[in-house]
Design a protein around this nucleic acid. Structure first.
Length: 901
RNA sequence: GCCGAUGUGGCGAAAUGGCAGACGCAGCGGACUUAAAAUCCGUUGAGGAGAAAUCCUCGUGCGGGUUCGAGUCCCGCCAUCGGCACCA
């Protein structure tokens, strides 16, 4: 049933500030019409009004954290862009999925709860209501039936479900896929689960009583509150994202993402090709397997005697040190070794008389924050541990040192030092007077005693009885020595990644509880039937201060059974945002996180990525996008989703700066609130200005004068169609008539349709708007304004300024019913006719030696010879030629003529 | 240090290798008005010649190059912003 037709009269209210057009009445009017009619409700496959003949288009915004301070003008930038795309695609005949939701777990709500005692749930609900109301005032076409909220048990049930899936899975390197843990045949399944427990050094913040993610720590202090942060080993849940490192790099290839973002991800994952090289320790040659050495990816479960070996380490044949190097070709130049001070083997290999110095050095650097450690990087420090290793390639005896320039977290935590060809090793060798031996000759050359000679070249001084690299270019030398090492048990080819496993637990209240219970120190997952696992209600959200999470205070909740207790950590904020785009496809489904039918329809467009367009800020270029891709791939391996990647096309909108050109912030007082802009200029003006400022992806400053400019444009469009009568009412202008368009009007209207269509496709909204301004200026000049021209303009303007265009179109329709009826939002996008764009005669510039000298007018299809003749005959040209004969005349028909003398 | 992005009027910006500055802001002049605001019309890169219409020179961060022709392509710099930062 349609509601009774509305009729709106506008009176100029003298008491009120005069508005260029009554946006304050028409905007709420259309917003409520859209809500009542359900204009933007998107049916799913299986729904009665679903049309399977239409292609799908999934256009998504990065959903916001609903903060207490509400929206600022940066938010609607990307949202307006996707809003335009969604409206446009719908008019182009697509089924459009364009949802919005809330990433609502997070530290601010919890901090607020600690301060005020108000439950985070209540505060979050208020903030969401505020955000939603602000978004609706801008007139976005979200399908609110699909709203999701990560803190809703109906949602986080499935976040917990996916975590449980990760926990019950391992990555099978043979199949290169996640599989149920039951297919793993090794002795220690807990060592390979995709979600696992680890004793990891974490950023512990005493002031906040919680661990923090790396990105929450700035300069050794907490981002919130500025409290000191220390590294402390704690029992933590980790996700084995490193298992997917290779796929996360390789599968970027098929995505339409900015190359810069792909590169950022690749660098973050940090793939390096090289080798592991084993160095036997002097005096430990016959020490059997009771000693350990580092080697990532090696399965300690194959060695049952190695129960005491920490995660990720392996048992060696003998007491060896393994190093990772990307330059195995320089092995003959290794003159010493360096271990990270935290390396577990230091205590085993160190000579007794050096142990005191080692302890002292460790204490020194232990007191340093990460910042200090890197700040002092210019000055290398370290101590000799009194041990010697044997270089496998020449049997040479080289000293072993510890130094903080070698990081425990990368590679094996140990390096072979080649001071001649590595800048850091060179500095260290110079300071401690260690030998430097050149083994690579580079094109640039140089004396290794004076400076480090970095880069590739030709191997020299690199031979033993059985092997010579001398004369080989670096690449060949690398592969030859790796072959030799592999044949002689001295090492192996190895690919190393910078990416670390993902620290996935937080000692917080306001997050998803883990679906895990502990029995006799062993963990197991809750049965699916017990999900969602709700957090307990607490009276007091303060941290315990001991490192125990707040959930530990709820002793009844923690007690699962006589024998078992619940995990008290919660998941980080990233968890809910890792899969929300899937829930939007089928947001209320109680049986599945998304039904297979809905998933297939909305996500499978025949491309690697599911979401057709994803728009958000660069601040998520690495972490969110990497995490979501990881989860998606696990779900893909199980067949729960039909594409290997979540997001096909990614666009980062640029930051909006304050009017002062500075980043918007409360402390600078340059934050612009969209509500104020709407109050003064209307939502359509806000939308239009956000898009008119400049290219979407560029950083650009706000300007209220600019808003006024586009508001003026909208008012001009209004007055194309409306005029004020004697009583001060806005009524349809008499100039609007059902007449044929003039040639010039035909041309500008069709040029506008063409340009706006193409510019929306390429997200060049600013130039689309200028073209509509050109069109409006042209029509303003006309004394009689053809309805057809106005209708076309309103139709292409509709995605940008939906309220104004619907209102004007309704007014036009009352007097001039057209071929289509109903809302513009439901009509078909106009086509342009190329025949109207061509002019009979065109103006062509004439250059002489590349300088513009004259313009001529020729028939549009004039032949090159004809144009040349006209050009040369021009008096101006003759004058400039000054009697000289042109050497060459270049005629580009339709473009220009260039005469060369 | 490494990686990436960006440098065009007073400002935001536009230009498939082909008339640099579309469109908008600000400015200036005019119309309407008792007046102002709003609106409409015109004008506006810099410098120079001319009474004027017009014309000339220079001009896209800097220096080179390719080309009949470069804001656009190539080489080398500089500056600003963003990310990473002893990653072996």
């Amino acid at each position: 049933m349609n509601p009774a037709p509305r009729r709106t009269y506008y009176f100029v209210d003298m008491n009120e500030k005069r508005k260029p057009y009554p946006y304050d009445r028409i905007e709420p009017k259309w917003q409520s019409i859209w809500a009542e009619k359900g204009t933007f409700r998107t049916p799913n496959p299986g729904d009665a009004d679903f049309d399977p003949a239409k292609p799908k288009f999934y256009v998504l915004d990065m959903f916001p954290y609903p903060s207490g301070s509400g929206l600022h003008v940066g938010h609607p930038e990307g949202y307006t862009a996707t809003d335009i795309i969604a409206r446009y695609r719908r008019m182009k005949g697509f089924n459009v999925l364009h949802p919005m939701g809330w990433d609502a777990f997070g530290l601010p709500a919890e901090q607020h709860a600690i301060k005020t005692g108000e439950h985070p749930r209540e505060n979050t609900a208020k903030n969401i209501a505020n955000f939603k109301q602000q978004l609706n005032r801008i007139g976005f076409n979200y399908d609110w039936n699909r709203e999701v909220n990560t803190t809703d048990p109906g949602y986080f049930k499935w976040t917990q479900w996916i975590f449980r899936l990760l926990y019950e899975s391992w990555y099978n390197p043979e199949t290169r896929k996640a599989e149920p843990i039951s297919t793993y045949t090794g002795a220690n399944p807990d060592g390979v689960r995709l979600a696992f427990v680890s004793e990891a050094p974490v950023n512990w913040c005493q002031g906040l009583g919680t661990v923090l993610a790396n990105e929450e720590v700035v300069d050794g202090k907490s981002e919130v509150g500025g409290f000191p942060v220390e590294r402390r080993p704690m029992r933590q849940w980790m996700l084995r994202i490193t298992a997917y490192a290779e796929r996360l790099i390789d599968e970027l290839q098929g995505l339409d993402w900015p190359e810069g973002i792909k590169l950022l991800q690749k660098n973050w994952i940090g793939r390096s090709e090289g080798a592991h090289v084993y160095f036997v320790l002097e005096n430990f040659e016959n020490t059997p397997t009771s000693l350990i050495a580092l080697a990532l990816d090696t399965d300690k479960a194959d060695h049952p005697e190695a129960d005491a070996v920490p995660e990720g380490h392996r048992v060696h044949r003998t007491a060896e040190l393994t190093v990772f190097t990307t330059r195995p070709d320089t092995l003959f130049g290794a003159t010493y070794m360096v271990l990270s001070p935290e390396h577990p083997l230091v205590d085993i290999f160190a000579a007794d008389e050096h142990k005191e110095a080692i302890a002292k050095y460790r204490a020194e650097i232990g007191g340093k924050s990460d910042l200090e450690r890197t700040e002092l990087s210019k000055d290398k420090t370290g101590v000799f541990i009194g041990a010697y290793a044997v270089n496998p390639v020449n049997g040479e005896r080289i000293p072993v040192w510890i130094a903080d320039y070698v990081l425990m977290g990368y590679g094996t935590g140990a390096i072979m030092a080649v001071p001649a060809h590595d800048e850091r090793d060179w500095e260290f060798a110079k300071k401690f007077e260690l030998p430097i031996r050149a083994v690579v000759q580079t094109a640039a050359g140089g004396n290794v005693e004076e400076a480090c000679v970095a880069g590739e070249g030709t191997a020299i001084n690199s031979h033993n009885a059985a092997l010579s690299l001398d004369g080989l270019p670096t690449a060949d030398a690398k592969s030859k020595i790796i072959d030799w090492l592999e044949a002689n048990g001295g090492g192996e080819r190895k690919i190393n990644y910078k990416l670390r496993d993902w620290l996935f637990s937080r000692q917080r209240y306001w997050g998803e509880p883990f679906p895990i219970i502990w029995t006799d120190g062993k963990h197991s997952s809750l049965p699916e039937s017990e999900l969602p696992l709700l957090p307990p209600d607490l009276d007091d959200f303060k941290p315990t201060g001991t490192g125990e999470p707040p959930l530990a205070k709820a002793t009844d909740w923690v007690r699962y059974s006589e024998a078992a207790t619940r995990e008290t950590n919660t998941m980080p904020q990233w968890a809910g945002s890792c899969w929300y785009y899937l829930r939007f496809c089928d947001p209320r489904n109680p049986e599945h996180f998304v039904s297979p039918e809905a998933e297939r329809y909305w996500m499978d467009g025949g491309k690697p990525g599911g979401v057709d367009l994803y728009v958000g800020g660069t601040e998520h270029a690495v972490l969110h996008l990497l995490y979501a891709r990881f989860w998606h791939k696990v779900l893909f391996d199980y067949g729960y989703v039909s594409t290997p990647e979540p997001f096909q096309r990614l666009v980062n909108q640029g930051l909006i700066l304050g009017e002062d050109g500075q980043k918007m912030s409360k402390s600078r007082g340059n934050v612009v609130n969209p509500d104020e802009v709407i109050q003064e200029f209307g939502a359509d003006a806000l939308r239009l200005y956000e898009m008119f400022m400049g290219p979407l992806e560029q950083v650009k400053p706000w300007s209220m004068a600019g808003v006024q400019g586009v508001a003026r444009f909208l008012a001009r469009v209004w007055r194309l169609i409306m005029e004020e009568n004697q009583e001060g009412q806005w009524v349809l202008s008499d100039a609007v008539q059902d007449v044929e368009l003039t040639g010039a009007q035909q041309r500008v209207v069709h040029a506008t349709i063409k340009k706006v269509t193409e510019d929306i496709e390429s997200l060049s909204f600013n130039t689309a708007i200028s073209q509509m301004m050109v069109c409006t200026n042209e029509l303003t000049a006309a004394t009689v304004r053809p309805v057809a021209a106005l209708r076309a303009l309103l139709q292409v303007l509709n995605p940008f300024a939906p309220h104004l265009s619907e209102e004007l179109n309704e007014t036009l329709d009352r007097k001039f019913p057209g071929a289509e009826s109903g809302l513009l939002a439901g009509r078909t996008w106009p086509e342009y006719n190329p025949a109207f764009l061509v002019e009979d005669e065109i103006e062509m510039p004439i250059q002489i030696n590349g300088k513009l000298r004259e313009r001529i007018v020729v028939k549009k299809d004039a032949a090159a010879a004809e144009i040349e003749a006209i050009a040369l005959a021009s008096p101006k040209v003759q004058e400039h030629l000054a009697g000289k004969t042109p050497r060459k005349v270049i005629v580009v028909p339709g473009k220009l003529v260039n005469v060369v003398v």
